[in-house]
Simulated scan of single mutants.
Amino acid sequence: MELPNRILVGYDVIHELGNFLKDLGLGQKVLIISGANVKDLVGKIVGESLSSFGISCLWHLVNSATVDHVKRAVDVAKSQQVKAIIGLGGGKSVDVAKLSAYYASLPLIAVPTSASHDGIASPFASIKGLEKPFSMVAKPPIGILADITLIANAPKRLLASGCGDLIAKITAVKDWELARDEKGEYFRKYAGSLALLSANLVIEESEEIGRGGKDSVRDVVEALISAGVAAGIAGSSRPCSGSEHLFSHALDILAPNTGLHGERCGIGTIMMAKLHGLPWEKIALSLRNVHAPTTARELGINPDLIVDAILLAPRVRPERYTILHKLGLDRKSIVDIVKSVGVI
Rank of each mutant, 00 (worst) to 15 (best):
N302T: 14
R320I: 12
K78Q: 14
H69T: 02
R72V: 02
A195C: 01
E205M: 09
E177F: 07
E16A: 12
A73C: 02
I32N: 01
S100D: 03
V42N: 02
A146L: 05
D23R: 12
D75N: 12
D75T: 14
E244H: 12
D95V: 00
E205H: 12
A146D: 09
V290W: 05
F20T: 08
I55T: 07
I151F: 03
L158E: 06
A309H: 14
F187S: 07
H261N: 08
R238N: 08
L311F: 08
D23W: 06
A168Y: 09
V96Y: 06
A296P: 05
A152Y: 07
I334N: 05
L108C: 11
L285D: 14
L275M: 15
S193E: 15
S241H: 10
L8T: 12
T149H: 14
L299Q: 05
V335Y: 09
I127H: 03
Y102I: 04
N63Y: 14
A84H: 04
D181M: 04
I344C: 09
G35N: 03
G43I: 04
C163Q: 08
L41A: 15
H245F: 10
K83N: 15
L26N: 00
S237F: 13
L17R: 00
H291M: 13
T66A: 02
K169E: 08
F134R: 15
A273C: 05
L312P: 03
S198V: 07
R188E: 11
A125Q: 03
P256M: 07
N257Q: 05
N5H: 14
V74Y: 01
V307L: 10
I334K: 07
L178P: 01
V67D: 09
H249I: 08
D215N: 12
V338F: 09
I225F: 14
A152I: 03
V38P: 08
F134V: 13
G210C: 00
D147Y: 03
W59G: 03
T295C: 05
G259R: 10
H291Q: 14
W280G: 11
S333V: 03
S126I: 14
L197G: 12
A292R: 10
E281G: 10
G143S: 11
I86C: 04
P141S: 15
I253N: 00
I334D: 01
F187L: 11
S340D: 11
L196A: 11
V307F: 07
K214Y: 14
K29Q: 12
T322E: 10
A101V: 06
S198R: 07
R72L: 04
A168C: 15
K92I: 02
G18L: 02
R238E: 08
L224D: 13
I32V: 15
R264D: 05
G266F: 06
L178K: 10
S93W: 00
Y11W: 13
L287E: 11
V82D: 00
S161Y: 02
K78S: 11
S122E: 01
G43N: 07
I55D: 03
